[in-house]
């Protein structure tokens, strides 16, 4: 993940994101409606800040031309010898909101690593947790969103018991 990412907040991106979570609230796509609300403009759903992945040049979960990709093509995985448990799952996500997002905002997102810890689990073997903290500041340097994510690498696929 890049240390600093520019994250432009765009109305069409918000509209597509809201559709994907099944949220038909017009504040996410109807400018005329949004003007009459307390917020006063189109804003983004509360979990939208993670869509910063679209703007991370190094994001590892996006297919790219002429680079190995671990999803299926001719074979179930196009990277040979990949362990069966590729293991990266999302364990926790926490947001703090300082003001509503607005189309036209350009956030500067800085990422820093947090804690790392381990746990034994019956369902997936050894678990390694890694915390990532992101601060999202607007064009005036004001803090808009703080995001703390915890990822987990599992020793084997999670047992569906």
């Amino acid at each position: 993940m890049a240390d600093t990412i520019k994250f432009p907040i765009e109305a069409s991106h918000i509209m597509m994101f809201a559709r994907s979570i099944g949220d038909t609230n017009p504040i996410y796509h109807d400018e005329e409606y949004a003007k009459k609300t307390e917020v006063g403009h189109i804003t983004a759903p509360p979990t939208f800040p993670r869509a910063v992945a679209q703007f991370d040049p190094d994001y590892h979960l996006r297919w790219r031309p002429n680079q190995p990709w671990f999803g299926s093509g001719k074979n179930p995985s196009s990277i040979e010898g990949k362990p069966k448990s590729s293991g990266g799952l999302h364990a926790e996500q926490h947001f703090e909101y300082h003001r509503p997002l607005k189309p036209g905002d350009v956030l500067t997102v800085t990422t820093k690593p947090g804690k790392t810890w381990e746990k034994e689990s019956k369902r997936a073997g050894k678990l390694v947790f890694t915390e990532t903290i992101q601060e999202m500041r607007d064009q005036n340097g004001e803090l808009v969103i703080t995001s703390r994510g915890v990822g987990v690498k599992t020793e084997r696929p999670v047992d569906q018991g």
Binding site: S20, I21, P45, P46, R50, E92, H94, F95
Partner: peptide, 27 residues
């Protein structure tokens, strides 16, 4: 994050738009 996003839809319907100060979950 899709499940958290759908959970967030319930929250904004309840508390109103632009009203959340914090939202955190474990999966």
């Amino acid at each position: 994050m899709l499940t958290m996003g759908m959970t967030g839809k319930m929250l904004t319907n309840y508390v109103g738009d632009g009203r959340l100060t914090k939202f955190g979950v474990r999966f």
